[in-house]
Design a protein around this nucleic acid. Structure first.
Lengths: 198, 198
DNA sequence: TGATGCAGGTAAGTAATATTTACTCACCTT
DNA sequence: AAGGTGAGTAAATATTACTTACCTGCATCA
C-alpha cells in the first residue's frame, strides 16, 4: 500500500515521503509542519532539506510517485478496449476508483498543488499532461471514426469529463464521504454520452 | 468595481478587505504577508486581528463579499427564463463570465479555500450551498415537467455542470489565459444538453 | 595498513512572519 | 464631567520553514 516507490532511494528519503503521505490522510498540507514530518519519519528536520528543495518540492515528489502508479493502471485498463465510448467510460470509472482508493493522491492533486505556480514545472504535472493528452487522443479518434458527433468541441468534451470526475470526488476528498464509484460513474457516463433531453 | 460591501463596516475593515483583494490579483494568498496587507490598506497589522479571527478568516470574508454580488447577479439573470434548459444555460454562461471578469473571486474559490476545513463553516461556503441548491431545484423542476429525461440522476447532472464550469476556468485562473466565455459555454451546453453521440 | 572521500544523517541555530497583548485616543451618552 | 465604548497602534511572542556546520561509518586505493 505505501509503496517503496523507487528502489535506489536512501531509506531516510523514503521514510520522509511516507511520513507526509501518512499525515496527509488526516490534515491538510499547510497545517503539517516540517517538525511533524521529521518526527513521524523518525529523522531530523534537516534531512528533509537534504533531499528536497523545500516543503512543496517534497509534496510534488509524493504526488509524482502516486501518479505513476495511477497512470500505469489506467493504461492497462484501456488497452483491451476498442471503441472510444468504452475507453472514455473506463477512464472515468477507473479514475474515480483510483481517487477513492487513494484519497491522499486525490487530495494533493485536487486541493493542494494547483495554487503554486512552480508545480506546473514539476514532473508530477507532466504526468497530468500525458494523462490529459491520452483522453484528447481518444476523443479525436472517436470523432474521426464517426462514433462521436462531428460538431462537438474535443477540448470542451475533455473539460466536461475531467471536470465531472473531479467535482464528483470533491465531496469525498474534503468531507471523507464514501463514494459509490460504480453508480456515480454510471450516472456521469449516462449524462455525457446519452445526453439529458428525451 | 471594488465595492463598498456592507454599509455599517468601519473604514479600516473595508480598507483591509480591499487591500487583500488587490494583492490577490498578483500573488497567491499564501505569499501575501499580513504586513503587506496592512501597509497597502494603510493600517497596522494589529487591526487585522481586531476584525478577523486570522488571516484565513479575512480571506473567507473577502470571498463572501464577492459571492454575494455574484449570486445576486445570477438570480437576476435567470428570473425571466421559463424553461429549465434555458435557465441552466444561463447559469453556465453567467458563471463563466463572472469568473472571467472577476479573477480574484475565481482564484479564491477554486484554488485557495477548499483545502482548509474551517472554510466549510464560513458564511462564504453557505453561499455556495445556496447557489448549488438553486441548480438542483432547476434540474428537479425540469425533470418533473418532462423537459429532462427521467432516468438521469439530478445530483450527477449538477456535478457535471459545476465540474465543467470549474475545469473550464482553471486554465484562466492559473495561467491567466483569456477565456472566450461565449464559445466555451456554447460548447459545454452543446455537449451536456445534446449529448455526444450521433 | 591507514589515509581519504563521501553518502547518509544530525544538532543547533536564524530569519521571517502570523498572532497576541497591552495600551492610546477620540467620541458618545446621560 | 464621569463613564463607557469603538477604532486604532506599537511592540512582544511563538511558530516554523529553512541553513550551516558538523558527525559517522564504510568502501576504496596507494
Amino acid at each position: 500500500m505505501n509503496s517503496q516507490n523507487k528502489k535506489g532511494f536512501p531509506p531516510g528519503r523514503i521514510k520522509i515521503m511516507n511520513a507526509l503521505s501518512e499525515l496527509m490522510r488526516e490534515k491538510d498540507f499547510h497545517s503539517i509542519t516540517t517538525a511533524e514530518i521529521a518526527s513521524t519519519a523518525g529523522v531530523t528536520e534537516g534531512l528533509i532539506y537534504k533531499y528536497f528543495k523545500d516543503k512543496k518540492d517534497l509534496l510534488y515528489q509524493v504526488l509524482d510517485g502516486h501518479f505513476h502508479e495511477f497512470h500505469d493502471h489506467i493504461v492497462k485498463m484501456i488497452a483491451p478496449c476498442s471503441s472510444a465510448i468504452e475507453k472514455l467510460s473506463i477512464i472515468i470509472r477507473t479514475t474515480l476508483k483510483s481517487y477513492a482508493a487513494n484519497r491522499v493522491f486525490a487530495k494533493i492533486l485536487l486541493l493542494e498543488v494547483r495554487n503554486s505556480p512552480n508545480y506546473f514545472e514539476s514532473d508530477a504535472y507532466n504526468m497530468v499532461r500525458i494523462y490529459s493528452g491520452t483522453i484528447l487522443e481518444i476523443i479525436n479518434q472517436g470523432m474521426a471514426s464517426g462514433e462521436l458527433k462531428p460538431d462537438i468541441n474535443p477540448f470542451a468534451l475533455r473539460q466536461v469529463i475531467l471536470g465531472s470526475i473531479e467535482h464528483a470526488c470533491l465531496g469525498e476528498v474534503i468531507f471523507g464521504k464514501t463514494l459509490n464509484t460504480e453508480t456515480v460513474s454510471d450516472h456521469i457516463c449516462n449524462i455525457i454520452f446519452q445526453g439529458v433531453q428525451p
